[in-house]
Design a protein around this nucleic acid. Structure first.
Length: 487
RNA sequence: GGUCUCGUGGCCGAGCGGCUAGGCACCGGUCUGCAAAACCGUAUACUCCGGUUCGAAUCCGGACGAGACCUCCA
């Protein structure tokens, strides 16, 4: 009996929130630009994937059947927009003195580990670029047939000038070609391109290239943008509902993807473009080139010099979702530890709600809270607002726990269902499994029993000695009405 | 230089024309042998200057400041 709600999504194409209308009722085609496997994904990369994982979960929660395609780039991007040729994976391979495939395999394993660590649902399909060379070649052929590309010395370039006669180049980024011409930084001697804004669809192989594929134009490598066009078309069609990715991909990558798709099929690949904002460190984008990045692993292990302690993956995920996906988020030790406390409070609420007993009648109305949460999801996937409503629910849970309020069986079931669905299903936060150390637990039972005896005899010296001693050992004792616990 | 985004209380971070965001910290309270923990509660805000409006953090213009993109980037 899920209420039909109208979802609205901020569309980067229009710069506005728009009501979401899927191409096929009840179904959503979602394509997200995934990682390039030339290094271990850093925390900034993970923020984008966490955000889109949340969006994916929201769409499913709203009852949509979602086909979620997230590509894996395992072919080095060959670009020459600045007259330079960069094969990221090949470079990494040379640096590590191994073959390209080893690089790709190594970092793919790491990425899969991170997906599990941060509780990312597996996409419906995770296609790789190297497994779709044929599709990329076919897409390039189609663009050539339509007259929006040209072959030059074994390479194929997208012809932006020809394209501009039929389509508007710059719909997504708002860039204008003549402005671009002036803005483009000093270039090296122009190469085979006819026009500065042209970009490579296929690049002729260099002698030192490790990965090379055959094509109608000779041996070479696919261009940076064409894999997304080829794979999104294959798995989602010429046009689908939502295309997502990091903000930094908006230009030129997504702009060129649009040009390719329009050039090949006459339509924008996606009706809604969504861009996740950057993770900042000290107010600046986390980036390989700034050197201010850290790895997800370092955060979980507490080995990054930026942070005083370790933060669990669910806590980090929660921290990320406390900011809206379209806002930049500055990650600092202070912000993270503040968020962690709230995170624990939420988990406490989650564990309490299951143990509550129903009353004969309800003295509080929980449905406004549930409605607020659903509305937050529908308002451009507003995770922070959703979390705020969950904290309202936590207050209700405590009130019931303290006997200050009651819920009848039906309402209590609704609250419990709501809480677990939102925290685990939608936010994707799994309670971290408590590490059970039976021997320590046995020792603690004895120690706390001794302390309890001392307390009953008002032997405060002994009881405080035990308490302070445990504190030094990193164990905190918590006294409450129901007894003493520790962690 | 061009294009765009953003400036919210001690910190993080929502809201985007009128109605308490939320979390953390602070302060007060309950509990406690004292603490801690836990729970409850109060307070503090919208960079500046103009304009529109009965009414603006919220819309428009300007100033200042920050960031992103224009080059590989999630």
């Amino acid at each position: 009996m899920k209420e039909k709600r109208s979802l609205s999504i901020y569309n980067s194409l229009s710069g506005k929130k728009e009501p979401f209308v899927p191409l096929h009722e009840g179904h959503v085609g979602l394509y997200v630009c995934g990682p390039t496997l030339y290094s271990e994904p850093h925390m900034g990369n993970m923020r984008t994937f966490i955000n889109f994982d949340f969006i994916y979960r929201c769409l499913r929660h709203l009852g949509y059947q979602v086909k979620y395609v997230r590509n894996i780039t395992d072919a080095g991007h060959i670009t020459n927009s600045a007259g330079q040729e960069i094969d990221s994976i090949g470079s990494a391979a040379r640096l590590e003195q191994v073959q390209s495939l080893e690089i790709v395999y190594k970092y793919n394993v790491k990425f899969q580990e991170l997906q599990r660590l941060y509780n990312l649902l597996p996409p419906t399909i995770e296609p790789t670029a190297t497994a779709h060379i044929q599709e990329q070649i076919e897409a390039i052929e189609l663009i050539l047939e339509k007259g929006f590309a040209y072959v030059e010395n074994g390479s194929v370039y997208f012809d932006v000038q020809a394209y501009s006669k039929s389509f508007h180049y710059g719909t997504l980024s708002g860039r204008k070609i003549d402005e671009l011409a002036q803005e483009t930084r000093a270039l090296n001697a122009q190469d085979e391109k006819r026009f500065f804004a042209d970009f490579a669809l296929w690049k002729k192989a260099n002698p030192e290239d490790m990965q090379v594929w055959r094509s109608p134009w000779g041996n070479g490598n696919p261009g940076w943008h064409i894999e997304c066009t080829a794979m999104s078309t294959k798995y989602l069609g010429k046009q689908f509902d939502i295309h997502g990715g990091g903000m930094d991909l908006k230009f030129p990558h997504h702009e060129d993807e649009i040009a390719q798709n329009c050039g090949a099929f006459g339509c924008n690949p996606a009706r809604y473009w969504m861009h996740a904002n950057m993770l900042n460190v000290n107010g600046q984008k986390m980036s390989k080139s700034f050197g201010n990045f850290f790895l997800p692993k370092e955060l979980v292990e507490g080995t990054s010099p930026l942070f005083k302690k370790a933060y669990s993956a669910p806590a980090v995920r929660f921290f990320m979702l406390q900011a809206h996906y379209r806002s930049t988020l500055d990650i600092t030790d202070e912000a993270l530890s503040a968020s962690e406390k709230g995170f624990e409070r939420l988990l406490e609420g989650l564990s309490l709600v299951g143990g509550l007993s129903p009353g004969t009648q309800s003295t509080i109305d929980i449905y406004p809270v549930i409605a607020a949460a659903e509305a937050a999801i529908c308002d451009d996937f507003n995770a922070p607002l959703l979390i705020a409503s969950l904290f309202d629910a936590v207050k209700h849970v405590h009130a019931i726990q303290d006997g200050k309020a009651t819920l009848n069986a039906e309402d209590l079931a609704a609250l419990t269902q709501f809480f677990t669905t939102m925290v685990q299903g939608v936010l994707g936060i799994e309670t971290p499994a408590k590490e059970e150390n039976h021997r320590l637990a046995g020792v603690m039972d004895v120690v706390l029993h001794l302390r309890q005896n001392a307390r009953e005899q008002k032997d405060w010296t002994t009881s405080d000695l035990i308490r302070d001693g445990l504190a030094k050992a990193g164990i905190q004792v918590k006294d409450s009405k129901d007894g003493t616990s520790w962690h």
